[in-house]
Simulated scan of single mutants.
Amino acid sequence: MPYMTDRQPNDHVLPLHDAPSDTHPADALTYCLRRVGARPLEFTGVELGMAMSFNPELPWWYEFNIFRSDSGFVVSIKRFHVSEDETDYCRAWHFSDLDAAMSALESYDAAQDVPVGRHMPPSDATAAELAATAFQLRAEIAETRAHFASLVGEFLHDLDET
């Protein structure tokens, strides 16, 4: 499974500033985030933070990154799948300030990441089968939202602790 952020590995810790600098820091990298349904988002910057929710008991997990770019801040949210039959994907946005980036991360609705195709009942399904399918889809949406919200909550808690 290919990693969706093309960059050179670097392990520097940088201060979190609200305004990007006019010049590139010495360890700034050029990133190219391949987004689902949109053109790749390319920018030069540094990664400020990352969180991942990998759990070997789940068939999918999230990863999000926050970058300080040369013209603001970038948030990327990726969903990976264990199965090679599923497609991994990335969503990413550019923001002018850190508050807007953090707000977007906190308000992201993970329900849009739940694939509906596998919940489609056959055309001759009974009312009971349709109801069961709807309950199953609602449960998966609730689980996905809770999973992502938990990841963001842990990340924000860890920021408060440092």
Results as ranks from 00 to 15, higher is better:
Asp113Lys: 08
Met102Thr: 09
Pro15Thr: 10
Glu86Cys: 10
Met102Val: 14
Glu161Ala: 13
Gly49Phe: 04
Thr144Glu: 13
Val74Gln: 00
Asp109Gln: 13
Thr144Ser: 14
Leu98Asp: 01
Arg34Cys: 06
Pro59Gly: 07
Asp113Pro: 14
Val114Ile: 14
Glu84Trp: 06
Glu161Thr: 13
Leu130Val: 12
Asp18Thr: 13
Ala142Asp: 12
Ala128Leu: 11
Asp18Tyr: 01
Asp109Asn: 15
Val13Phe: 12
Pro20Lys: 01
Phe95Asn: 01
His94Lys: 12
Thr44Leu: 01
Phe95Glu: 00
Leu156Pro: 00
Glu57Ile: 05
Arg91Phe: 10
Gly49Cys: 06
Cys90Asp: 09
Ala134Gly: 05
Pro9Leu: 09
Leu159Arg: 10
Phe64Met: 03
Leu41Val: 08
Ala28Pro: 10
Thr44Asn: 04
Glu57Gln: 13
Leu130Gly: 09
Leu151Trp: 05
Met1Tyr: 06
Ser71Phe: 04
Ala139Ser: 11
Tyr31Gln: 01
Arg7Lys: 11
Leu14His: 15
Thr126Glu: 07
His12Gly: 05
Tyr89Met: 08
Gln136Lys: 12
Ala132Gln: 12
Gly49Ala: 14
Ala134Glu: 14
Pro2Ile: 11
Val82Met: 12
Arg68Val: 00
Met1Asp: 08
Phe135Lys: 14
Asn55Asp: 15
Ala131Asn: 06
Phe54Ala: 07
Leu58Cys: 08
Ser69Asp: 00
Glu143Met: 09
Val74Thr: 03
Met102His: 06
Arg7Pro: 00
Ala51Lys: 07
Phe95Val: 04
Arg39Met: 07
His147Ser: 12
Ser83Met: 07
Leu105Asn: 02
Asn10Lys: 09
His17Gln: 10
Pro15Tyr: 02
Pro2Tyr: 02
Leu16Asp: 01
Met4Pro: 14
Phe64Gly: 00
Cys90Arg: 01
Ser123Gly: 03
Pro20Leu: 02
Asp22Gly: 15
Phe54Trp: 09
Gly37Gln: 07
His94Gly: 05
Asp160Glu: 14
Gln8Ala: 10
Tyr62Val: 05
Ala131Leu: 15
Arg118Phe: 10
Thr30Tyr: 05
Thr87Gln: 13
Trp93Tyr: 04
Arg118Glu: 11
Asp113Gly: 08
Met50Gly: 00
Thr23Cys: 06
Asp27Trp: 04
Asp27Phe: 06
Pro40Trp: 03
Ala38His: 14
Asp22Met: 04
Gly153Lys: 02
Gln8Ile: 15
Asn55Tyr: 02
Thr162Asp: 08
Ala101Gly: 03
Trp60Leu: 11
Thr133Ala: 15
Phe95His: 14
Phe135Ala: 14
Glu161Phe: 05
Ala142Cys: 04
Thr144Phe: 02
Leu29Glu: 12
Thr87Val: 14
Phe43Leu: 06
Asp160Tyr: 07
Tyr108Ile: 03
Phe43Trp: 03
Ser71Met: 05
Asp124Arg: 04
Asp6Cys: 02
Ala101Thr: 05
Asp113Trp: 08
Val114Lys: 05
Asp85Met: 09
Asp160Thr: 15
Ser96Asp: 06
Glu47His: 00
